[in-house]
């Protein structure tokens, strides 16, 4: 009875505090631009070779961090594998099993062993890169802490998607030969005129796979990070302490949702890569 009274008192006190906060005057309105977070400025200026600018910017640093984290994790885990796994080893084994069973095993019919390394590599790279994007690191303007993900950059995701694109056709051509592979794009029972049209449509769809694979990952990460930024900065826009408290609570929920999205997007990228490569290997008759 006494405890319930105490809880009720706390509740009333909290509501009163929120009501007082609602009437406090807010701070000065600050200018705020969401997309400024995603602009890339060279941190270390390097000479450019022809049209290729080699300057080190935020995205490059995030890619380096991703690579370093992956390499260190792989090194540590491969040095001491125990029959009774530690916590870290258990997590890595679970992720490995996920890549092996639910991604490669569930989608590809043949040649699983030879394509598992690429697909698992893409999965781990995208996963670690997405998750590092949710850790505040001091690479924003004037070395402030800020959120950025290497995968929230179209060039990084396009490079990843190009890998899948190239490997898809490499796998198909190596298995069926160039002529056999291109012929396998359309059913052999189709009449010749229709065949040419279908070949053209299929070629266009191959290019659009590249676009959709890269834009999906890029737009998901960019949208997630800009929603986070909007929630964090909403207090500046409303100039109200009540809105600030409520929206900070909301931003925590959005942040948790972003962790989920980061994992799902890595999973989808890897599984679509597996679907494309598997489709090139086992063409329907």
């Amino acid at each position: 009875m006494k405890r319930r009274l105490l809880v009720g008192l706390y509740l009333v006190a909290g509501l009163v505090a929120l009501a007082i906060l609602a009437f406090l005057p807010g701070g000065a309105r600050a200018q705020f631009d969401v997309l400024a977070e995603f602009e890339l400025h060279p941190i270390i200026k390097l000479p450019s070779i022809g049209p290729v600018d080699l300057s080190i910017n935020k995205a490059v640093i995030y890619l380096w961090i991703t690579t370093a984290v992956l390499a260190v994790c792989a090194f540590i885990i491969s040095r001491n594998i125990k029959p009774v796994p530690s916590r870290f080893q258990f997590v890595m084994e679970t992720l490995y099993e996920l890549a092996r069973r639910s991604i490669v095993g569930a989608v590809m019919k043949s040649d699983q062993a030879s394509w598992f390394p690429y697909i698992a590599g893409a999965f781990f790279f995208v996963l670690v890169s997405n998750l590092i994007g949710l850790v505040p690191l001091p690479f924003a303007e004037n070395h402030q802490f800020g959120f950025y993900a290497a995968t929230a950059n179209l060039y990084a995701t396009l490079a990843l998607a190009l890998c899948t694109f190239v490997f898809t056709h490499y796998a198909g051509i190596r298995k069926h030969g160039l002529v056999g592979y291109v012929n396998g794009w359309v059913p052999s029972s189709a009449p010749p005129v229709l065949r040419q049209l279908m070949l053209l449509i299929h070629a266009i769809s191959e290019v659009f796979r590249l676009v959709s694979l890269s834009v999906r990952l890029f737009a998901n990460m960019l949208a997630g990070h800009s929603i986070l930024a909007v929630f964090f900065a909403m207090a500046l826009i409303f100039q109200n302490y009540l809105a600030a408290v409520v929206l900070q609570a909301g931003s925590i929920i959005i942040y948790l949702f972003e962790i989920f999205i980061a994992c799902i997007q890595a999973f989808i990228f890897a599984i679509l890569s597996a679907v494309y490569i598997g489709g090139a290997l086992d063409q329907e008759e």
């Binding site: 737009a219 949208a223 989808i268 679509l272």
Partner: peptide
Amino acid sequence: GEIRTDMFIGIGVTEAVALYAFVIALILIF
């Protein structure tokens, strides 16, 4: 397990359409 895997493939493909709209909106603004 199999249904969930296929569902995620479908989600990825469907969701991309909304993200194209997002990219178009960004292009329009900026």
